[in-house]
């Protein structure tokens, strides 16, 4: 029975992410980073009157954060492929 469960789990893992899903995942990770950076920058502009520098710097940092997100997501996807 354990073997059966194990086999089922393996099958579950084998199916893996589809290309569509993967693309959407990376895309949303990146977009999320940029959006969060922009939001923070906009907030800083609004709160401290740094306009337009807050938004500018925020978006640039957001790009960096988005890239970091994508790298982490890719790592976790690869790890899953390697581990299971």
């Amino acid at each position: 029975m354990n073997a059966k469960l194990e086999a089922r789990r393996e099958k579950e893992a084998e199916r893996g992410p589809t290309g569509w899903g993967l693309g959407l995942r990376y895309g949303s990770e990146f977009a999320g980073g940029v959006l969060a950076g922009a939001g923070l920058g906009y907030l800083a502009d609004w709160a401290f009157g740094w306009s337009p520098w807050g938004l500018l710097v925020g978006v640039i940092l957001g790009f960096a954060a988005g890239t970091l997100n994508v790298v982490r997501a890719a790592q976790s996807v690869n790890n899953q492929d390697g581990a299971d």
Binding site: E29, G39, G58
Partner: peptide, 11 residues
Amino acid sequence: EIISFISRPVT
């Protein structure tokens, strides 16, 4: 890292 963390709920 903080922006990355904040981006999580957004994502």
